[in-house]
Write a protein that binds this DNA or RNA. Sequence first.
DNA 1: TCTGGGGTCCTAGGACCC
DNA 2: TCTGGGGTCCTAGGACCC
Length: 431
Amino acid sequence: MFALVDGNNFYVSCERVFRPSLNGRPVVVLSNNDGCAIARSNEAKALDIKMGAPWFQIRHLEESAGLVGLSANFTLYGDMSDRMMSLAAGLGPTQEIYSIDESFIGLVGVRDVTRRARAIRARINGWVGIPCGIGIAQTKTLAKLANYIAKTAERKPGSYPEDLAQVCNLAALPASDLEAILMTTAVGEVWGVGRRIGLQLQEAGVNTVLDLIRLSPSTVRARWSVVLEKTVRELQGQSCIEMDDAPAPKKEIACTRSFGRPVRDLGPLIEAVSEFAGRAGEKLRMQHSVASEVQVFAHTSPFREGPKFSKSIVVPLRRPTADTSALVSAAVVGMRAIYQPGFDLIKAGVMLLDLVPDNIHQCELDLEGDDTKDRTRLMSAMDCLNGRFGKGTVHVASTGLDDHRREWGMKQERRTPQYTTKWAEVPIARA
DNA sequence: TCTGGGGTCCTAGGACCC
DNA sequence: TCTGGGGTCCTAGGACCC
């Protein structure tokens, strides 16, 4: 048995904890560059604002419907997530943190699950202030579905039986009730069925979850893929996706950004990829890996007219490393190699590839003097300073100075304070 | 004017080998 | 005129997730 605990409209809920005046209003949280909506309050969903809707297309609703758009404040969301996760962990013996707002809980040996889930939900709501939905079922895919039902039953009264709102335990339902529910749920809501596959299923006459459950796994495998076959088996109650409570280290690490405005010159591009390589290096060291290759890319907007440019290059490193200056040099070499003048570039990025644990050393003949130990200590000192005094306190010089940053830096015009992670921005309560 | 970022897994097809 | 069969490894691209 599995539970899925998922924060409702998570980013919006985080903002509302510190600005209760946002309750009851349509609110969206915007992606970097204030580009598009990545979280929506129920009121915003009711305005028919879609996930990923570009801000410039919906901002007229500020005037006409009282819509509030906020720049993403990921530092705040990460901290709120930690608090929520630690309480969710109380539901069962194992936890897999699946995303910033979701965790699976393994329920082996847990009794009275539904009642316990309601108690945990109340605790998260009371102590952290984030409303959650909890889905419980035989497999992970079914638990995801149960979670969807728990949230939808709450948000749209009448869509599902009232007593399934907030906490939905599919395993506790009589078979006939379960069937009725699956019959009214669209196949596209299933975890693992995206837009493409959803359309193909509908063309084949598979419209509801019940339709999908009734297909035979072998048919699904032959006609679609082993991936969808797994999904069908999971829906049929056969657990194929196990708990993963100690996630493996990442196989690649990326840092990519859209620019606040188009960039044409090599100078700012080099600054940008230098910074991205530095950030990626921090993540790399955090998981105790070294990278063997650095990939760099840049491209023009896929949405705008004008000459198109999109190139990437993989730069091999002389030996696997997590040293920021080596990563930055490689990124700069790559960018110089692919750069061509005359294009309005709107995005660039750095990816670290072929990652291996940093405790595996390839021995080599020492020809140039080995300063690896000093470099490692330097990197630790850098990470330590940046952790304590804030991102970017210490960085390599090719990242550029702050006043150049405006050339390519992000637009973030509507960001709220870092209420829980910066002393200067902690809210003050007045009696 | 204006459209995010960071991942994973699977498959098909090409390169290469004997 | 006419050119095998079987295998591995790698990469690019598609699909999905949040």
